[in-house]
């Protein structure tokens, strides 16, 4: 078994793999991250069967927390399998913070949080802002501290999909990209290492100051979002709101009462960055 471990924000992961190549890819992409002593979560990439391991290698994700019917992925997509496995552990197992399915960037100690369905552009927008004067905090999960309400970074590898790949290739250092994986269940995927300062400062929380619901592919628009709608959307965007019980309720209501929220529609990354920065000047 080949092994790899990395600390991402407050969570420590250990990945075990029957193949060497995914572990080498992970080690290269996570080179800037600290190595934890004791993992919070273990993810194993295992062959579907011994026979299949040689005929057509396929990867099953095994871990502390599992989805029963996750489909195996081809070995060429093992990096994606590892990332999915790590996300799954966080989504199903993390209890130390209120976990929001959202991206975030920071400026002046304050966090801009963006949430939306897959394809909304929240990941790309956080990556673009992370290249233009903001500190990247995470493109998938935002962790809210249950005591202070602060947003805690979780700057895992940025998972770029489809058109976002070319958009970021034009912006970021070529050496920080992982291999292009074509034809995955989510389309084309390429991972990007977050900026060095985002990883170095991943223990620094920020106070939530603005919440955006971006929506890609629609004409430019900004809309107020009432706190009740925000509450409904954010409880849906949290995988552990129910499991945390009263602590989750308290953290969620405080977040919503103290953070202004807007929905933004946009057609291009440049338009979204400009919209986000304009609202930040006005509201944060």
């Amino acid at each position: 078994m080949h092994e790899f471990s990395a600390q991402v924000g407050p969570a420590a992961f250990r990945i075990g793999s029957q193949w060497r190549s995914p572990v080498d890819q992970l080690a290269a992409l996570y080179a800037d991250y600290p190595k934890p002593e004791i993992p919070d979560f273990s993810v194993r990439l295992e062959a579907v069967s011994m026979l299949r391991r040689f005929i057509r290698p396929s990867v099953m994700i095994e871990g502390d927390y599992m989805l029963p019917d996750a489909a195996p992925l081809p070995l060429a997509q093992a990096l994606l399998a590892a990332e999915m496995g790590m996300n799954l552990q966080m989504a199903l197992g993390w209890r130390r913070h209120l976990l929001l399915h959202a991206s975030a960037v920071e400026k002046d100690g304050k966090a801009l949080i963006m949430t939306g369905a897959s394809g909304s552009g929240k990941s790309t927008l956080s990556a673009l802002l992370g290249q233009s004067g903001w500190r990247f905090m995470g493109d998938e999960f935002v962790l809210l501290d249950l005591e202070s309400g602060a947003a805690v970074p979780f700057p895992r590898l940025i998972s770029l999909k489809n058109e976002a790949i070319a958009a970021m290739e034009a912006q970021a250092d070529a050496a920080r990209f992982g291999p292009l994986m074509e034809g995955t269940p989510k389309g084309n995927i390429r991972h990007l290492m977050p900026p060095v300062d985002a990883i170095a400062r991943m223990a620094e929380p920020a106070k939530p100051a603005l919440l955006l619901f971006p929506r890609y592919g629609h004409n430019w628009a900004v809309r107020d979002v009432a706190p009740g709608e925000t509450f409904m959307r954010m409880t849906q965007a949290s995988t552990n709101y129910v499991a945390l019980g009263e602590a989750g309720f308290t953290a969620m209501t405080r977040f919503i009462k103290t953070t202004p929220a807007r929905a933004i529609d946009y057609q291009s990354g440049a338009e979204a960055v400009s919209l986000a920065e304009g609202l930040w000047e006005q509201l944060a």
Partner: peptide, 20 residues
């Protein structure tokens, strides 16, 4: 019950059931 008014509606967290 934890009661949180939120701009036109009210959230009630019911400790016994854990339901909001």
């Amino acid at each position: 019950m934890l009661v949180e008014p939120l701009d036109g509606l009210t959230l009630i967290y019911h400790r016994r059931s854990g339901v909001t």
